[in-house]
Design a binder for these strands. Sequence first.
DNA 1: CATGAATGAGCATTCATTCAT
DNA 2: TATGAATGAATGCTCATTCAT
Lengths: 219, 219, 219, 219
Amino acid sequence: MAPIDRRDQERARRKQEILQAARAVFAESGFERATVDAVARRAEIGKGTIYLYFENKETILAELVLQALNELVLRLRAAADQCSLLHPDQRLHALADAYLAFAQNAPDYFRLLNAYDHGSFQAGISAGLREQIVAESNRTLELVAQAIADGMALGLFAPGDARQLAGVIWAALNGARALMAHPVRREWVAADATDLYRATMTLCLKGLTCPTPGERSVP
Amino acid sequence: MAPIDRRDQERARRKQEILQAARAVFAESGFERATVDAVARRAEIGKGTIYLYFENKETILAELVLQALNELVLRLRAAADQCSLLHPDQRLHALADAYLAFAQNAPDYFRLLNAYDHGSFQAGISAGLREQIVAESNRTLELVAQAIADGMALGLFAPGDARQLAGVIWAALNGARALMAHPVRREWVAADATDLYRATMTLCLKGLTCPTPGERSVP
Amino acid sequence: MAPIDRRDQERARRKQEILQAARAVFAESGFERATVDAVARRAEIGKGTIYLYFENKETILAELVLQALNELVLRLRAAADQCSLLHPDQRLHALADAYLAFAQNAPDYFRLLNAYDHGSFQAGISAGLREQIVAESNRTLELVAQAIADGMALGLFAPGDARQLAGVIWAALNGARALMAHPVRREWVAADATDLYRATMTLCLKGLTCPTPGERSVP
Amino acid sequence: MAPIDRRDQERARRKQEILQAARAVFAESGFERATVDAVARRAEIGKGTIYLYFENKETILAELVLQALNELVLRLRAAADQCSLLHPDQRLHALADAYLAFAQNAPDYFRLLNAYDHGSFQAGISAGLREQIVAESNRTLELVAQAIADGMALGLFAPGDARQLAGVIWAALNGARALMAHPVRREWVAADATDLYRATMTLCLKGLTCPTPGERSVP
DNA sequence: CATGAATGAGCATTCATTCAT
DNA sequence: TATGAATGAATGCTCATTCAT
């Protein structure tokens, strides 16, 4: 291993350390309230060091978001692949479950995704990074759209605009998750978060599904 | 009218002026970036005066949120009342439309609702105010739940947990709106925001509806 | 005296206090090294207060420079007026002496003038302020040019471009002052600063003067 | 050539490379704003390496200043030598022209000289270096003083303190150059920089010169 | 010798909140 | 009651210098 390799590796490791520290700090205090100082303290490095690895506070967030999206897409793809031969219903359920699992297992990443979606970070983030995030973000929707399109092709789902329906379903899942993230509303609904989430997917699938020919053609 | 009344009235009017100024300023710059100074300038009063009417910058937000919720509930109730005798399907569609209309006609209030939901404002807001907000917020869900319960009672919707389903539907609508608020995703979905929103409600209703007896009992 | 007047007066007084504190601090450490904190401490006020009176650190410098120039022009004009009826030679000597006196009595102001001339403060200073400074700065040269023009009109000085000669003389005086400001060079020249300064003016005047007709036409 | 010599040579070359890089960077951004990082990048070496060759950022400036002075003295001496047999008037003109040429051909060096004169770099620069700079700086004045002394000895200039007059003339030239370096004042004077500079020298020489005996003793 | 990663003091500026008038 | 001047803690970011490799 050449020394250059070692140095690059070391550099990448350090960057990861900072990112993980930032992930924790941002999750704790929210991006706006979090300070670079706090990130540095968490990473046990000097404040200036952070600026050797990142242009900006905002760039740290963006890189974290990209990382989160990578992880999410990975999980979604794994779920989709595993169910590629099954009924699209099941594939969609699997995608929904993977999404929920991600939100539950990596809640830090999840908050970050939301924070990035909400805030307006046009300045400070390089165009390339922004594009990567958009691309990766779209990939999640594409996996859902593919499952729907497959279902339509098989005549299991009523024909329609797969992308639009993917949007609807993804939005519904997201909404359900957001709803249940609020303790107050969770209390009002008086249901388990996972149950409500599953109910959402079930409801959507019921709306999506073609009445089966067998049920229709009563002699 | 006693002088005390007059004074109270004056005081209430002043408070409203500040709130409306804050509403405009918060909408323009976002809550975090908005400054109390800007609110005072907008309201054409002294900065210190604001603190005679509000404990905090956060309290201003909270009172605005309460106002926004009041307005929303008013609209939703109006929509529900107008459709109280019609098919619950139509009542739910009317609620959804009223919600969307609110988001479009009072975008300032809407941003505020989201900002409040997102931020973590535990400190600085009095418990009483927080409770009022929670109560008013729940009222929106109750209207939806009522429509669903009525539909179930009439045998039009499959029996189930009305609150849970209200949560699901409300969440789906909210998710749809949030999805289409993002230019990037709107582009990907390639659909009109209102269309997707309606499609969401339609999908949910399809999932909710009992197959009609008439359709079933084919002789 | 209306309260508004009093408030304005108070405000102006405060501004002056800050300016005088800044004058001292800038003179001590130089503009670049001086910190706003130090100015605040010197003025015995909070750091934020400074920004109620000035946009910028640079604006403080600019206002000080304007003040310095006002003072300088005042002194030069007084000197010129007092000698308006005498020989232009004497008026120019008076202007030079006034300039030197200013440099010696208000050395803080003088350093500031130099600092401003040297630094590049395009940003941060309002256009209006910049223009005022330029105008006031030119006024000093105009007084010199006027004296020269008068001397030419009287046939005492050889005819020529009064503005150019004013530039030459002013530059020479300035150079002399700058030279003697350096201890090292003062030592080398081994002359009193004031003597060298006067010698400069004398030399210039000798170069300027027309040989008097009476001395030439010896029968 | 011993290996030690080679090493010394190599070291000197390296030092020169750094100095030339610093010269460019300082000229571009000014000494205060320039960063050691930028110098290192320009010199295509590591940042730490610079500190193997120089104690300080300030020392780099000082060594550059010494180099600039060496170059200036070289040029002045060449000009003086070439005119050593001519009328002292011409020698002084030649010195002035050489000075102006230096300012125009090596503006980087010139800015550095001014920056050094202006800033207060007592700390950080070794006493020895400071002394060298003083010595070399004085050498320029000595060349002027010599020309004046020669003129006095020949009876061409009125007798007087040659050093003092050298100071006056040098200061005048310097002032003229500084005046014309300012766009605003150049505009006011409405003259070509070189013309004004020459006019300054001419004026000084006129003030210096003895009325020629032939002109006086008209019978 | 050469490197460049790491450091942390330092800076200009902002802003929610207080309080004397 | 209304005001707005005053405050100072807090923030993101820079950069000369050091030091382990």
